[in-house]
Structure formats: C-alpha cells, structure tokens
C-alpha cells in the first residue's frame, strides 16, 4: 500500500438519474455472464430459425413427426438464454453482497430500482434485435413468408423477448438468486404446462410462456390458444405484476445478501 494522500474529489452538481443508469449499464456490461447469455441466445435462435426454415430436422409429436416451425415451445426456447441477462443483473446483486454496496452508493430505494430497471430495459432493447435477427432472416430467406410478415414476426418476437425478460427480472429480484427464477421459468413450460393442460387448459394458457406463444401466433394447441392481443395483454400483465412486486419489495426489505 502506498502513502499517497487521498485526492480531493471536486464537488459536483446533483446526481442525476442518468448517472445511476450509466452505472447500472456498466455493471451489466462488466459481467461476463451477460455476454455468454447473449451469445447463447443468438446462436440458438439462429440455429432454430435455420432448422425451422429448412425443415431438415423433425420432432417426435403425439401424432407422428412435426416440423420445428410448428413447435412454439421449441422455437421460443432461446428466450431462456436471453432472459438470463436480466436474471443475472437482478439476482447477481445478491452474490458477494453486491446489493449492500449498491445501496450504499444509491440509498434511495426507489431511484435504485428505477435506474436498474431503465438500464436493463435499455440493454435488452438494444440486444434483442441482434439476437432475433439472424433466425428471422434465415426463416424469411429460406422459408415462404413475405417481407412484411417477416418484419411483423421479428417485431412481435422482440416484444415477446422483452416482456419475458421483465418477468424474469422481477422474479430474480423477488427470489434474490439467479438459479431459482431461471429454473422456475424453464420448468413452467416443460413440466407444469403439460401436466396442468389436462386438468385446466383455461388456467394453463394464462401462464407467461403459453400466453407468449399465443401472442406470437404459435400456441401449443387450440385449447391453449388466446387471441394475439389477449396473449400480449396477459404476458404484459405478468411483466407489470412481476416488476411491481419487485419494486415494492426493494423499497421495503432489509439488505440481506
């Protein structure tokens, strides 16, 4: 350690929300998991787009083989790599006691939550197009959709990714961990939906994953289908609920890491 005296830090004007957002973006950028998750999402989305467009690989279904393009759950699978970004952003705060350092720097809980939310929204909004574009281009170039339909599908998919990202973000704040929200989000479509579908398709189609598939126009079956605007409304409601609960909890609870 040196014996250099501390340097005077010049006083500056009020800390703005944009300063806090910039700091949160730095946190996200400086986390290797962010880049790994985005690379995984991009690769998986591009590969599935290619397979869906060329139909060279088929899946085993109840009534024989089905094309990948007909399986919404498979086509939507890369979103779970994409939502790892908000999950790591929120859940990562509870690794190494980072949340306590964050709250020392930004003690106003509402400003802290808002800046973090704006930062992750910005990062996801910038990242979503590069992630979904290659898969969409492959499906358009090799498939039979016209350009208008392809752009519409891309935009819809980007919105779906963003909304599921927000659901995941709120869940990670509530769970204070990385593993649980990712596990729950993956288990819901893979295990819960198939089991619940037989008992109550009316409830199953309101789950975030199933509502997103309806919004994308790829429901897993007629019994789970919602109109696309209704699907959008349901997944939007999940996102609002998740973020609202996370905000309320952040404002009130102690800083246990």
């Amino acid at each position: 350690m040196n014996t250099v005296p501390t340097g005077r830090v010049p006083d500056t004007c009020e800390i703005k929300l944009s300063d806090l957002v910039r700091a949160e973006v730095t946190k996200i950028r400086a986390l290797p998991a962010t880049w790994v998750a985005l690379a995984l999402a991009l690769t998986a989305d591009a590969l599935l787009g290619l397979l869906a467009a060329t139909d060279v690989v088929r899946l085993a279904g109840h009534d024989g083989q089905i094309a990948i393009a007909q399986s919404g759950t498979v086509l939507l699978a890369p979103v779970y790599a994409f939502v790892a970004v908000p999950v790591f952003t929120a859940g990562g705060e509870y690794r190494g006691g980072q949340v306590r350092v964050s709250l020392l720097a930004v003690p106003d809980r509402n400003r802290f939550f808002l800046s973090k939310l704006l930062a992750i929204l910005g990062v996801l909004a910038v990242a979503v197009l590069p992630v979904v574009l290659p898969g969409g281009v492959a499906q358009h170039a090799l498939g039979d959709a016209d350009a208008g339909e392809a752009v519409d599908a891309l935009f819809t998919k980007a919105v779906a990714y963003l909304l599921l990202g927000l659901v995941a973000y709120g869940s990670a704040v509530l769970a204070r961990t990385v593993v649980t929200p990712l596990a729950v989000l993956v288990v819901l479509p893979v295990l819960v939906s198939p089991l619940l579908r037989g008992l109550s398709p009316e409830v199953t189609r309101l789950l975030p994953h199933e509502a997103t598939l309806s919004f994308l126009g790829m429901p897993e079956g007629p019994d789970l289908a919602l109109d696309r605007p209704v699907g959008l409304s349901v997944v939007l409601a999940w996102a609002v609920l998740s973020i609202g609960a996370a905000w309320a909890v952040t404002a009130r609870r102690d800083s246990c890491p």
């Binding site: 700091a23 946190k27 990562g92 980072q98 720097a105």
Partner: peptide, 19 residues
C-alpha cells in the same frame, strides 16, 4: 458487502464512481 466475484476490480470502482 462486496463486488460480484466475476467482475474486475476496476469495473467495480468505475460503476460506483459513475453512480
């Protein structure tokens, strides 16, 4: 109370400074 272990030391201080 500390940084996320995967973050670099300088990055930890930079975000704190920005905030």
């Amino acid at each position: 109370a500390g940084p996320v272990p995967e973050r670099r030391g300088i990055d930890h201080l930079v975000w704190m400074a920005q905030s």
